[in-house]
Computed example of a mutant assay.
Amino acid sequence: MSQFDQENKEAELQGNGQVIDFNEEKERLRQDEGIKWMIKAAEAGDVWSMSEVAYLLLTGNKVRQNLVEGEKWLRKAAEANDKWAMMELGYRLIVGEGLEQDAVEGEKWLRRSAEAQYPVAMRILGYRLLEGDGLPQDLEEGQIWIRKAAELAEPIAMRILGYRLLNGITFPQNIEEGELWLQKAAEAGEVVAMREWGNYLVNGVSKK
């Protein structure tokens, strides 16, 4: 390749790079404009927008992360009784993810979401009570919430319930019921449940 051709090739590559940068900048501007409109909707009282703005700002997904603003909108959505927001606020307070850790307040919000029949909140509350993870251990109540979530077809709850019944972990061992729930979770597409159900069919478990 001649020097002239090489220079032309380099110029072409640089030009393509500028086009890509321009497209990225255009996309960023679109996203910035989009978040502005969602904030306007949130400020006007739209609860879905409050939750969405909170999620975007807390995670930094497609927008610049801003934990302070994210927490503000998450709290507003939770105070407006949005089930996801109550669950998310509770979870983040319990584990200290993006918010200052406060397990007492976190439990309050997580319970409000679970009591509002939000299956994921039921499962998170149940699991943390079973394990004593971030909350005081309470096996009896933990079992109740995991069952409630499983009965609402929350896939991970069905898997937890099935696996623990099969193996007698924080539940009395019950092979027949354990098979039922683990198979349901696998058929619902929960990947870990697929693995555990397959492993159980191949290897079984030892009865206690």
Rank of each mutant, 00 (worst) to 15 (best):
Q6D: 14
G189F: 12
A193L: 04
L13R: 08
N167I: 12
P136M: 11
E43C: 07
Q31T: 13
F22G: 09
R164C: 14
I39L: 12
L139R: 07
E177A: 11
L110G: 06
G198N: 09
E179Q: 13
W181F: 12
R123F: 15
S51W: 10
D138S: 12
E131D: 13
W37R: 11
A77T: 02
K207C: 00
G168A: 11
E176F: 09
L152T: 04
V95Y: 07
N16K: 14
Y127R: 12
K83W: 00
L99R: 01
Q137G: 12
L165W: 06
W48S: 13
A153D: 14
V53R: 02
E190C: 08
R159F: 11
W73P: 03
E115T: 13
Q101G: 08
A186E: 05
N23V: 07
A149V: 08
L110S: 04
G98W: 05
V68C: 00
I94C: 05
Q31K: 10
G90T: 04
G189C: 13
G168T: 06
E154A: 11
D5K: 09
Q14A: 15
Q101H: 07
R112V: 01
V68Y: 02
E179I: 10
W109K: 05
I175C: 07
E140L: 11
E154W: 07
N174W: 09
N23E: 08
G45D: 07
A186R: 00
G162S: 09
L58R: 00
W73I: 02
K148A: 13
K9I: 12
A11K: 15
A114T: 03
G70E: 06
N61V: 03
N199C: 02
Y91A: 06
V53N: 01
E100I: 11
S113K: 06
A85Y: 08
D133P: 09
M87W: 13
R164H: 15
S51T: 10
E100K: 14
A85R: 03
S206V: 15
M38V: 02
K9S: 11
M122H: 02
G134E: 04
N81E: 07
S49R: 02
E107P: 04
D46N: 15
D46P: 00
I35L: 13
G162R: 03
L67E: 06
N81W: 01
L58Y: 01
K40S: 15
D102F: 08
A185H: 01
V205C: 02
V53Y: 04
K72E: 11
A153M: 04
Q143G: 15
A54C: 07
Q117L: 14
E7V: 14
P155I: 14
E43Q: 11
A41Y: 05
V104E: 15
